[in-house]
C-alpha cells in the first residue's frame, strides 16, 4: 500500500487532556469570533468546523489534544466528538506538527498527466523530505494532495491561501526562496483567512 494512505492513520494520536487541567489559549478575538458564529447556526455543534479553524490559527497551525479539547470545551461537546470530526478532514493538521509553510502538491489526474510526479520528485529532492515530512529547520512541510480543482493550471501547488501553477523547476526555486524570506507562517495565515471569510459583522442597511 502506498505511503499516501498511511498518512491518514497516524501512529500518534493527540492525548485527550483532562478538562480541569485545560489551559485555555483562545484570544479575546477568537472568543468574539466564536460568539458571532453561534448566531449563524441554530446550535453550537454546527460551529465545530469553524471552531477548529479558529483553533488551528490560535494553536499555530497544529491541532494537538489541547486545541481539540479547547474547542470541545467552548462548544460544550465531548472531546471524542470533536476529535472525530477533526481527524476526518484532511486540512486540519491533527497527525503531526507542520512547518511554517505547507507545500501541497496536487498529483491527481490532470496534474498527473501534466507532469506532477516529476515536480513532486524535484520538491522532495530539493527539500530533502518525503511526503508528510517537515524539513529539519521546520520551515517546509511537503504534502501530496488530491485534486485542487485548478486543473487548467496543472501541475499546481497550494501554499497557504494561494495556488501556484503551472509550476516548473525554475518557478519552484523562486517560490521556495520567496517563502524562506517570508516572516509570517502561511499555514496560520490560511487558517486566519478561512476564519475571516466566515465571521465579521454583516451590515444591514
Amino acid at each position: 500500500m502506498s505511503d499516501f494512505l498511511q498518512l491518514g492513520s497516524p501512529n500518534e494520536r493527540p492525548r485527550a487532556p483532562r478538562l480541569d487541567e485545560l489551559d485555555l489559549k483562545f484570544s479575546d478575538q477568537a472568543l468574539a469570533e466564536l460568539d458571532e458564529l453561534y448566531s449563524h447556526y441554530p446550535d453550537k455543534k454546527s460551529c465545530i468546523l469553524p471552531g477548529l479553524w479558529i483553533a488551528q490559527r490560535e494553536y499555530g497551525g497544529y491541532l494537538n489534544g489541547e486545541a481539540i479539547a479547547e474547542v470541545a470545551y467552548h462548544l460544550k461537546r465531548s472531546y471524542a466528538e470533536v476529535e472525530g470530526v477533526a481527524t476526518f478532514y484532511s486540512m486540519y493538521n491533527t497527525v503531526h506538527a507542520v512547518g511554517k509553510h505547507m507545500i501541497e502538491v496536487c498529483t491527481c489526474l490532470s496534474c498527473q498527466v501534466c507532469g506532477a510526479y516529476p515536480v513532486a520528485e524535484y520538491l522532495k529532492k530539493k527539500l530533502g523530505v518525503g511526503f508528510g515530512e517537515t524539513t529539519e529547520d521546520g520551515v517546509f512541510t511537503l504534502h501530496e494532495v488530491e485534486c485542487l480543482n485548478a486543473c487548467d493550471r496543472a501541475p499546481v501547488l497550494q501554499v497557504g491561501s494561494s495556488y501556484h501553477g503551472p509550476v516548473d523547476e525554475k518557478s519552484i526555486d523562486a517560490l521556495l526562496e520567496n517563502l524562506r524570506a517570508q516572516e509570517e507562517s502561511t499555514v496560520i495565515q490560511m487558517a486566519n483567512d478561512i476564519v475571516k471569510v466566515q465571521t465579521g459583522p454583516l451590515k444591514s442597511k
Binding site: 454546527s46 472525530g84 486540512m91
Partner: peptide
C-alpha cells in the same frame, strides 16, 4: 434572507449533498 459562508476542510465526500449537510451541522462528512 441571510447568507453565510461555511468553509469545508478538505473532503471530497462533502460534495455529496447529504454528506455536505452532515458537515455543515458539525459532523464527519
Amino acid at each position: 434572507f441571510d447568507l453565510y459562508i461555511h468553509m469545508g476542510a478538505g473532503s471530497y465526500e462533502c460534495g455529496e449533498e447529504s454528506a455536505l449537510m452532515s458537515s455543515l451541522m458539525g459532523e464527519r462528512g
